[in-house]
Write a protein that binds this DNA or RNA. Sequence first.
DNA 1: TACATCCTACGAAACTCTTCGTTGACAACT
DNA 2: AGTTGTCAACGAAGAGTTTCGTAGGATGTA
Lengths: 130, 130
Amino acid sequence: MPKPELPRPTEAELAILRVLWERGPSTVREVTDVLQEARGTGYTTALKLLQIMTEKGLVQRDETSRAHAYEAVASAETTQRQLVTDLLDRAFGGSARQLVLQALSAKRASRDELAEIRSLLDEFEKKAKS
Amino acid sequence: MPKPELPRPTEAELAILRVLWERGPSTVREVTDVLQEARGTGYTTALKLLQIMTEKGLVQRDETSRAHAYEAVASAETTQRQLVTDLLDRAFGGSARQLVLQALSAKRASRDELAEIRSLLDEFEKKAKS
DNA sequence: TACATCCTACGAAACTCTTCGTTGACAACT
DNA sequence: AGTTGTCAACGAAGAGTTTCGTAGGATGTA
C-alpha cells in the first residue's frame, strides 16, 4: 500500500501536532502542560483530541505504560507541505508566485531571510535544469 | 474607525469569494452557475452562504435590482495575505523561509515562476534597504 | 386573470469541531 | 483497608459550517 493519505489537521489538532513535533512522543499530561500555557487547553480536551487524532491516523499511540505516549505520524515537513498545497489550491488558484509574494509582504522578511530564500531558489533552479 | 477586521472565510466562503473576485459583483444565480460546475453547489446553498457572508461583513449586498448583487468587501490580495499570515503562525511558527520552501517544493515551480519570484526578491530587498 | 418562473427568506437537518463533566480503573501513600 | 491522585474512556453540550426543502413575493407570459 502506497500511503494512507492523512486528513488535513484542524486548528486544535495542528496545535497538538506542533507540540509533538517539538517534543517527540509525549503523554497527554505533557501535551496539556504545554497547551495549557499557550491556549488554555484542559486535560480532557487534549485527551479527547488525541483520541480522535488516533482514529484519524494523525498520531500513533504507544500503550505500553499506563500513561500512553502519542507520536505524530507525519513529519512537520510533510504536513506543512500538505497545508501549503491546500492553501495554494483553495486561495491562490495554484499560483506559487502570488503565495510567495503575500508571504513576504505579510512577514516583512528580514535581509537574512531574503538571502536564505534566494539560495533556496538557486537550489531549485539547479534541480529544474536536470 | 480603522478597519472592522473581517473574519477568516471558511472553505465554502472562500470558493464564493474567488468567484466574486474573478467576476466582480454578481447575483446568486451567477455565483451558483460557476460553483455548480466546480463543486456541485446548489442555488439555495449559495444564497444562504452569501446571506451569512453579508452578516459577517465579507461581502456587500446591492439590493437595487430584484436579483441582489453581491460584491467582495476585501480584495483578493488582502484576504490572501490574511490567510498566509494565519498559516504562517499556525503551522510554521512564523518562519517565512520554511513556508516558501514548502510552497516551492510542493508546486515544483517552473523556470519562469522561479525567475518571477527572484525578481520579487529584488524588489523586497530594495525596499528593505531604505 | 391564471400559470409558470425566478427571486429572497427562513428554518431545520446533518455534520464537524471543541470543550469539558463524569465515571471507573489503577496506583501510590498512610 | 482507606484515601488521594492520576489516568483513559465515554458522552454530551454548544458552536460553527454546509446543505437543502419549503414558503411566499415579484415578474413575465399565455
